[in-house]
Amino acid sequence: MEEVRAPMSGNVWKIDCAEGDTVSLDDAVIVMEVMKMEAEVFATADGTVAEIKVKEGQAVEEGDLLITINT
C-alpha cells in the first residue's frame, strides 16, 4: 500500500482519478490549489487506486493523506 500525501497546505481542486483506476508512477492524480496556483500531485507508485480520502474543494494541511494505492 502506497500513500499519496499533500505536498503543501491548500485546497483540493480536482481529483483526476477514481477508486479502482489503474495508475502509473508519476501520473497526476490530484490537482491542488495553493495561493491561487494549481499544483499537481503525482502517484507514488504503479498500482490501482484503493481509496480516495478527500473531496474536491476540501482544505488539506501539508502531509495529509489524499489517496492510497494498492501496488
Binding site: M8, S9, D26, M35, K36, M37, A39, E40, F42, E62
Partner: peptide, 23 residues
C-alpha cells in the same frame, strides 16, 4: 507578492515536477 514566489515554484517544477517550492 506572491507573483515572484509563484515564478520560483514554476521554474522549480520545470526541473523536478515533484519539487513544491511555493510555500
Amino acid at each position: 507578492v506572491p507573483m515572484a514566489a509563484r515564478v520560483v515554484h514554476k521554474v522549480g517544477t520545470e526541473a523536478d515536477k515533484r519539487n513544491y517550492l511555493l510555500m
